[in-house]
């Protein structure tokens, strides 16, 4: 089974809150087990859910904390985050800016491939999380957005 496929399954498990997944086809068999706090799964990325009292809190959770009422725009890939189209250009967006769907918010670069991070809905930029030029992971929160309209 391709590495990529396993990643995809792992993401699916997280999304659906599954603790265990076993899959078999002609060529391979894979069993994925995920540590889940308590009986319920972790909320899907970006979802807003109440925290369990006394629930475990690892550093990734703290970083992923999305204040109630805000949406998170996450990195689609591992790479380098750029706030501006070039080093001497102004940033695409700054906190306070209201953006329309389709607006370019930033770039994530991997292997000289420029991925435009585009707003899917209209909203007000509340914060830009990573520093310009910082390495980001798949799913790293790039922007916090307050829905408008």
């Amino acid at each position: 089974m391709e590495h990529e496929e396993i990643r995809r399954l792992a993401r699916l498990m997280e999304e659906l809150g599954l603790a265990e997944l076993e899959l078999e086809d002609e060529t391979s068999r894979v069993k994925l087990v995920r540590a889940v706090a308590g009986a319920a799964g972790r909320p899907a990325p970006g979802a807003i859910a109440p925290r369990e009292a006394g629930g475990g809190s690892d550093p990734a959770d703290a970083e992923d904390e999305i204040p109630p009422g805000l949406g998170a725009i996450r990195s689609p890939m591992v790479g380098t985050f750029w706030r501006a189209p070039s080093p001497d250009a102004p940033p695409f967006v700054s906190p306070g800016d209201v953006v329309e769907p389709g607006a370019v918010l930033g770039l994530v670069e991997a292997m000289k491939t420029m991925n435009e991070v585009v707003a899917e809905t209209s909203g007000r930029i509340v914060s830009v999380r990573p520093e310009n030029g910082a390495p980001v992971e798949y799913g790293t929160v790039l922007f916090l957005v307050e829905p408008v309209g």
Binding site: E4, R7, R8, P76, M77, V78, G79, A110, M111, K112, T113, N115, Y138
Partner: peptide
């Protein structure tokens, strides 16, 4: 492809 795989296209 998923966006993660796209940079390989540039190679």
């Amino acid at each position: 492809l998923s966006p993660v795989e796209v940079p390989r296209l540039t190679l």
